[in-house]
Each structure stands twice: as C-alpha cells, then as structure tokens.
Amino acid sequence: MSLARIRWMATVLGVLGVAGVLVLHWLVFFWVGTERTMGIVQRIFYVHVPSAWVTFLAFGITALCGAAYLWLRDERLDWAAQSAAEGGLVFGAIMLTSGPLWAAYAWGTPWTWEPRLTLTLLMWFVFVGYFLVRASAEDRQAGKRMAAVIGVLGALLIPLVHVSVLWFPSLHPQPVVLNVEEGPTLDGDMLITLMIGLLAFTLIFFSVFCLRYGLEHMRYQRAIATREQPRAT
C-alpha cells in the first residue's frame, strides 16, 4: 500500500471516528438516561468499555501480526504489530484511568480487583515489556523477533491469566459492594450509546493505527533513500 493511500485511509477513518465521538458526546451528556444506582458517574462507562475493547483488539492484532511476522518475515507485519501495540498502550491507559475514576466514586475505592480490570493491567504491562525489549535490543532485527515472541506468548498465556483472575475472587470472598456482574443491565438507550462508543473508538483506533503505520512506512522509505539499506531478513 502506498503512503498516500495509507494517509487517505487515516483521514477517512479519522473523520468518521471524530463524527462518532461528537455524536457520542452528545448522547452521553444530553440524551442517555442516568443509571439508577450509580448515577451520573456511570457515564464513564461509555468511554471505559470501548477503550477496553480496543485494548483487547490491539492486543489481538499485535499477537496475530507478530506470529505472521515470525513466519513470513514481512516488515509490514512488524509495522502493523508495533502500531497496534502502541495503540494498546494508549487505550489501555485510558481504560486504566477511567476505571478507577468510576470505581472511586461508585464503590468508594479507586482500585477493585475486578477480573477484567486486573487482566487489562497485566496486559498493559505486557505491552510495556514489548516496547522495552524493542527499544533495548542490541540488534534491531532480533528486537523485532523478540517483541513478536512476547506478543504471541502473551496472547497464549493471557487466557490462562484471565481464568486465574476470574476464579481468584471465588477463592477469596470479596465484599458485595465490589461485585460487578456484567455492569448494570443495560436499558435500550444505554446500549445504543455504548454501541456508538464502541464504533467511534474502533474507528479512531484504526485511524491513528494507519497514521502510525504510515510513520513506519516513512522510516523505511527514508532508510532506502539514505542508502542505509534495512538489513534483509
């Protein structure tokens, strides 16, 4: 894909995503009903859940592209894996800041060991490791492979980590206040708002993903232009 094409896609996705975000803002602040038990603060839900979804999506893309990179050794797969991982880091941070804010008000404690929150925290640290290894690798090509290995191994072990943290509360009883089953049962308007949120966040993610991918593309072109051939794999 040419650079212009990537840029075009980033723009289109970005415009759609921003439109979605504007609609989301209007829905969240003016339209959607207030949840009965948790009140206003429940509106954080519409940024929290979509960012969590995007974090998981990004993790999946990183793992899949990483595995494909190890197999096919196509640099573009590494660009995609890296771009998605960076997105996972950013959206994971959104999830991890909005979650405690919600919890601090709704349940009176900023951090709950709620399984999905815990899982996202751990996943976020896997992403951190992904970039630390890339940045500190003595050999760039080895760094790419090792980062891919981290992505793949992370994806293989994360389901087990998920099962562990899911079952952990059943081993140690938790206060009922912190018992968050599937969030509140959603009314129609809340479901619509959530869906718009998911859509908008996904579009924004892919837009910036394209932008980030374009950056790697530029680096590659630059490396060729300056005759500093990227080492063949």
């Binding site: 509106r43 960012s51 960076e86 997105g87 950013v90 959104i94 800041t97 919600w102 910036v208």
Partner: peptide, 17 residues
Amino acid sequence: YVFIAYALAWLLLLGWM
C-alpha cells in the same frame, strides 16, 4: 469524575497523535 475521565481519555489520544 466524568469530566476528568473523558478529558484524560482525549488527552491521552491527542498525546499519542
């Protein structure tokens, strides 16, 4: 709380971009 959560979300995204 809601405002801070949304503001942080957009700030993080803007920072990334």
